[in-house]
Simulated scan of single mutants.
Amino acid sequence: MKIAEFGVENWLNQWEKSAKYDISQSTISSMTISELLAMNGDQDSDLYDQLNQIKMNYGWIEGSPSFKQLVSDLYDHVQPDQVLQTNGATGANYLALYSLIESGDHVISEYPSYQQLYDIPRSLGAEVDLWHIHEADSWYPDIEELKKLVRPNTKMICLNNANNPTGTLLDKTFLQQVVEIAKSVGAYVLVDEVYLPLDQPENFTSIVDLYDRGIATNSLSKSYSFPGVRIGWTVANNTVTDIFRKYRDYTMICGGVWNDILAVYILQHRDQLLARNQKIVLHNLEIFKNWVADEPRVSVIFPQAVSTSCIKLDIPEPTESFCLRLLKETGVLLVPGERFDLPGHARLGYCTDEVTLKKGLSKLSEFLRQFD
C-alpha cells in the first residue's frame, strides 16, 4: 500500500513548535482542564477524584455508556449503539474508509478538503474522482458536476463540512441534493463534521439526520477546543456500525480510561463550552475582517463562524517559500496553500487567543510590505 505524504500534517509537524505566533491552527483556542473547571464554576469538581481513583484497565472498549449517550444526543435520530469512540476524527475517518472501501471501488471526494478523504481511498486501490470547490462560488462545489461524476457503481461520496481549509459550510438544501444523487446509486456519504458554525450552531445539519447511508465523523478537537483529549467518534446506521466494529478491533482497542472521563465531562458541559467558543469566534472574526479590510495584499471568502479560513495572497512568490520565510523571520506560522493544492493561498486560523492573533496579523502585514 502506498500513500501520499499528508501535506498539512507534515508541515505542522515540522514547524508548529518553533512558531512564536501560531495563526495556522483550526482549533478554537485550546483550554487547560483547570480553565474548563473554572468556566463551569466547578473548582471542587469530582473530576479529579474520578481520575485519581479509576483503574487503568482498558475501560469501555467502544466508549462508556455516558459518552455514547451524550454523543447520540447531538443528533436528531441517533441511538447510543450507533456511536463508536475513535482516536480523534482522523481515527474516525480512517475507520470508515478502511471498513468500506476496497480496491476497484469508485469514490467521489470534495477537493480540496481534508486529505484523508481522497488519499486513503486511493491507497486502498479505489478510483477517486475529485469534486472541486470553486473560489468564485464562495468555495462551493457545483451540484451539476457531481451529477456528471457519479456512476452506477459509486461506493461513497466524501465531504468535509465545514471545509478545511476554507471554512465553507454546505447548507441543508445543498446536502439534500447530494443525498438524492447518492441515493440514486446507493452510495454512502461520509462527512467529516468537526467544524461547527458557531454563529448559529442550531442550524447545522448532520448527514446522519438526512440519509440512512450517511456516516458522520467528529471529535472534541476543533469546535470543542480539546485536541489533546484525542477522542472522536463515528455515527452511522446499525448495519454500517456493525461493520465498523469488526474493523475497529484492528485499528484501536479503546480510547483510554482518562480520555473517556474527560470526554464525558466536556460533553456534559457542552453548552457552557460552546458559549465560550462562540464569543471567541465571533470576536476574533471581527478582528480578522477588519485586518483584511486594511490589508491590500490579502483577500478571503470569510467562513461562517467556523474556526478555519483560507486567505489569498497577492505576492510575487510561491506561498510555501513565503510562509517559510515568514516563520523564520517573524515567528508567524501559516499553512501554505500548496499543502491543500491551493497555491497562492494559505490557511489562517483566527481562533487562537486574541493577543497571538493581533500580533500575528500585525507582523504578517509588516512582512507583506516588502512587496509594495
Rank of each mutant, 00 (worst) to 15 (best):
residue 94 Y to D: 00
residue 94 Y to G: 00
residue 95 L to R: 05
residue 96 A to V: 08
residue 97 L to S: 07
residue 98 Y to R: 09
residue 100 L to F: 07
residue 100 L to V: 09
residue 100 L to E: 12
residue 101 I to Y: 05
residue 101 I to G: 04
residue 102 E to L: 06
residue 102 E to S: 14
residue 103 S to A: 14
residue 106 H to K: 13
residue 106 H to S: 09
residue 110 E to C: 02
residue 110 E to Q: 11
residue 111 Y to Q: 05
residue 111 Y to G: 08
residue 112 P to D: 00
residue 112 P to I: 01
residue 114 Y to S: 02
residue 114 Y to L: 04
residue 116 Q to P: 10
residue 117 L to V: 02
residue 117 L to D: 04
residue 118 Y to R: 05
residue 118 Y to S: 11
residue 120 I to E: 02
residue 120 I to F: 07
residue 121 P to N: 08
residue 121 P to Y: 05
residue 122 R to D: 06
residue 123 S to C: 05
residue 124 L to G: 03
residue 124 L to Y: 02
residue 126 A to K: 07
residue 127 E to F: 12
residue 129 D to I: 07
residue 130 L to D: 11
residue 131 W to Y: 15
residue 131 W to Q: 11
residue 132 H to N: 15
residue 132 H to I: 14
residue 132 H to L: 15
residue 133 I to C: 11
residue 133 I to N: 03
residue 133 I to F: 06
residue 134 H to I: 11
residue 134 H to Q: 10
residue 134 H to R: 12
residue 135 E to D: 07
residue 135 E to G: 04
residue 135 E to L: 06
residue 136 A to T: 07
residue 138 S to Q: 15
residue 139 W to H: 13
residue 139 W to F: 08
residue 139 W to M: 12
residue 139 W to N: 15
residue 142 D to E: 11
residue 143 I to C: 04
residue 143 I to V: 10
residue 145 E to T: 11
residue 145 E to D: 12
residue 146 L to F: 13
residue 146 L to K: 14
residue 147 K to D: 08
residue 147 K to P: 08
residue 148 K to Q: 15
residue 149 L to W: 08
residue 151 R to M: 06
residue 151 R to N: 10
residue 153 N to Q: 12
residue 153 N to S: 13
residue 154 T to M: 10
residue 156 M to C: 08
residue 158 C to Y: 14
residue 158 C to V: 14
residue 159 L to D: 10
residue 159 L to N: 12
residue 161 N to L: 02
residue 163 N to H: 01
residue 165 P to K: 04
residue 165 P to V: 02
residue 166 T to C: 05
residue 167 G to Q: 03
residue 170 L to F: 05
residue 172 K to D: 13
residue 172 K to C: 14
residue 172 K to W: 08
residue 173 T to M: 11
residue 174 F to K: 01
residue 174 F to N: 03
residue 175 L to M: 14
residue 176 Q to Y: 02
residue 176 Q to F: 02
residue 176 Q to L: 11
residue 179 V to Y: 03
residue 179 V to E: 05
residue 179 V to W: 04
residue 180 E to F: 10
residue 180 E to M: 11
residue 182 A to T: 13
residue 182 A to Q: 13
residue 182 A to F: 11
residue 183 K to E: 15
residue 183 K to H: 15
residue 185 V to M: 07
residue 186 G to Q: 11
residue 186 G to D: 10
residue 186 G to L: 12
residue 187 A to C: 09
residue 187 A to P: 09
residue 188 Y to L: 15
residue 188 Y to W: 14
residue 189 V to P: 12
residue 189 V to G: 09
residue 189 V to D: 08
residue 190 L to P: 06
residue 191 V to K: 02
residue 191 V to I: 06
residue 191 V to W: 01
residue 192 D to L: 03
residue 193 E to I: 01
residue 194 V to T: 03
residue 197 P to V: 02
residue 197 P to R: 04
residue 197 P to D: 03
residue 199 D to T: 01
residue 200 Q to L: 05
residue 200 Q to Y: 01
residue 202 E to H: 02
residue 204 F to N: 01
residue 204 F to D: 00
residue 205 T to W: 01
residue 205 T to Y: 04
residue 205 T to S: 10
residue 205 T to F: 04
residue 206 S to Y: 14
residue 208 V to T: 15
residue 209 D to E: 09
residue 209 D to Q: 09
residue 209 D to A: 08
residue 211 Y to L: 07
residue 212 D to P: 05
residue 215 I to S: 03
residue 216 A to R: 11
residue 217 T to P: 04
residue 219 S to L: 03
residue 222 K to F: 13
